[in-house]
């Protein structure tokens, strides 16, 4: 069977491309780096891929605001091609800065079939970058590949991760209508706004979003830094308790399920 293909986007300042590439390969995809410059010159390249991944980093230094300059470049030069990519059955994943880019681009949450900025990811309440492991729970959402109701630990590492909407009602609608896919949870498994379980102060603890047709996922914390068993902060304790290490770290589920869906649809 032909392996599903994943485009790993590169751009000045994107810096998680190697681990994202490796995680997709490990999940069975054939992944390829494509620099934004090349993609803008040859937008038809998108047709060769089933999965588009925008990795984390600091695209263009996160100047002006996080992800803004890369999103602007993609909006101006790729226009609706990305939307068409998703419409024709492509899957997309934005992690951390990649999530910020997809939000600025208007691809997330993308309530209807058009690019529009309706939410933002802005400065953490602490006003600084922070790297810490968080516990997340996936919701019943529109996302076609993320399993519902699982609890995972991934590291968050960002300074601008507080997901905000214009008003409280639109935020509630994101949850009610299945756009909010992942939430920060506390020790009891309940969605939380409290630091440090929620590292940025996002209302209702929203950590990740999907779009109207569930084919795009954006998350602030990093599945690409938690897909190997030894990535997990407590792997030694796990090994001690279970007598052996599990095959995967908690982040692997995203890559496996995405590749599984892409393979099934091919």
């Amino acid at each position: 069977m032909k392996r599903p293909t994943a485009l790993i986007l590169r751009a000045p300042g994107i810096n998680c491309e190697r681990e994202t590439h490796h995680a997709f390969e490990r999940a069975g995809a054939a992944s390829e780096y494509v620099h934004i410059k090349r993609l803008l010159e040859h937008p038809d390249l998108l047709d060769d891929f089933q999965i588009l991944s925008v990795p984390g980093g600091f695209s263009y230094g996160d100047d002006i605001s996080s992800g803004r300059v890369l999103a602007q470049e993609m909006k101006a030069k790729l226009g609706d091609r990305i939307l068409r990519f998703v419409d024709r059955g492509g899957l997309a994943l934005g992690i951390c800065n990649g999530f910020q880019v997809l939000v600025r681009l208007g691809l997330l949450p993308c309530l209807h079939d058009e690019l529009a900025e309706s939410v933002t990811l802005t400065h953490n309440l602490s006003n600084h970058y922070e790297c810490r492991w968080v516990t997340l729970k996936t919701r019943a959402s529109r996302c076609v590949f993320l399993p519902e109701g699982i609890t995972v630990r991934w590291p968050a590492a960002h300074g601008e991760g507080r997901l905000m909407t214009r008003d409280a009602a639109s935020l509630q609608a994101l949850l009610d209508d299945g756009f909010a896919a992942v939430q920060y949870v506390d020790d009891k498994g309940a969605a939380t706004e409290s630091y440090p379980a929620n590292p940025n102060g996002a209302p209702l603890g929203v950590a990740g979003l999907t779009n109207h047709n569930g084919r795009v996922l954006g998350v602030m914390p990093h599945p690409d830094r938690s897909y190997l068993p030894t990535h997990m902060p407590e792997w030694r304790r796990t090994q001690l308790e279970r007598g052996a290490l599990p095959e995967d770290g908690d982040g692997m589920v995203v890559f496996r399920e995405m590749v599984k869906v892409a393979a099934a649809e091919a």
Partner: peptide, 13 residues
């Protein structure tokens, strides 16, 4: 420590 990214590159064991 928390202000530094100690996880990027996914090599941390």
């Amino acid at each position: 420590v928390r202000q530094y990214d100690h996880e990027v590159q996914a090599a941390s064991a």
